[in-house]
Design a binder for these strands. Sequence first.
DNA 1: GCCGTTTGGCTAATAGGCGTAGCTTTCTGG
DNA 2: CCAGAAAGCTACGCCTATTAGCCAAACGGC
Lengths: 208, 208
Amino acid sequence: MPRAGLSPDAVVRLAIEVVDAGGPTGFADLTLAKIAAKAGVAAPSLYKHVGSLADLRREVTVIAVRELTAVATSATVGRAGAEALRELATAWRTYALDHPGRYAATQIGPDPDDPADATLRDAAAESVQVVVAVLRGFGLPDDRVIDAVRAVRAGVHGFVTLELGGGFRMREDVDQSFTVLLDMLVAGVAALAPSAAPPGDTATGSRP
Amino acid sequence: MPRAGLSPDAVVRLAIEVVDAGGPTGFADLTLAKIAAKAGVAAPSLYKHVGSLADLRREVTVIAVRELTAVATSATVGRAGAEALRELATAWRTYALDHPGRYAATQIGPDPDDPADATLRDAAAESVQVVVAVLRGFGLPDDRVIDAVRAVRAGVHGFVTLELGGGFRMREDVDQSFTVLLDMLVAGVAALAPSAAPPGDTATGSRP
DNA sequence: GCCGTTTGGCTAATAGGCGTAGCTTTCTGG
DNA sequence: CCAGAAAGCTACGCCTATTAGCCAAACGGC
């Protein structure tokens, strides 16, 4: 008969705790029953604060995407060019490794047609804008920026998803492999600029 | 009272049909009930042919990984260097786009400790070996091969997962972006070789 | 051709998930 | 102080997977 003092935000916070506790599959394994247990409440009571499990998952995803945007942004303030790109990618990977469940949540793509996904679409677009901003520092032609952004996103996202999924044996050397990937991306993006001369280091040299 | 004529293989075949019918989320949405409905059989009857849903999913995953290995292999026979890498990556992406559900199945990593995952581990290792073989043609030092393999896997896998997940707006230009990514990977891998000179072309390659 | 065994289907039932309906209790605002 | 909103609850319906036990169809030996 006592009240648990829940609120929509509190439920989302508990959901994130459950996600964090579940490792890389924490988001996939998120369940209303677990949240209710953690809140000390019967499962149907959660519907007083949340529309559905799908809604709750969407809110968790939005928060995770915004967190990722925030760490990426703060990793690149005051930096430019290759250094900014390296810091961005490193912060991105660090967030994924520190919060694997939340990072898995960010992989949920918004439905372009569903109005309920509008804020998620916005959050996702904002996170891409951080990459765009960093790559603008390379002086790329406008029509090449999108290709560079996609390559960087693909490389970093692919790397961390493979890493989180256990796709890499020999865990010791993973940091070095990530550095090599960043070298490739930095050099590759720089090579897209018309007038050679990358604004920062190149680490592996550039090609004509 | 008539018999449906099922077998373990037939059940797996039906499972793959269900996966294929479900688009990118077909694997996540795979359910014994759907398979049973497609077979014209009650759900518990499937247990005469399959150990559990987890077993069945594992078998689907193994098949998908082997298919991916096969298309990657046949795309690279008789080719070497940059051309082989481009064809490998293109075949990889084509498989993912043609069979999004099956490609999603390949993303589940084997548990390194679970003996039931042994054949999946082997299949996954075989698929990585295709990339290793292609990259060997670049004349990399042994301790750089692993970094190059990881970078290629990360780039291609990241690209197709983002593409399948709807992470790219403006669908028209995706082919070009993939080509740009391949340019970066080819140049980046070539740059890892001690004696400059990439063995194949360096410009943007071909594609139908 | 017949009998016994294996095999492949079935129904019934358990356990756990989401979600709805409706009741009761607690808090709050006038 | 009391009415009504808010936040719990239980009971239920429907969907999963999975187990247990039954029954009929197919098959092997003779």
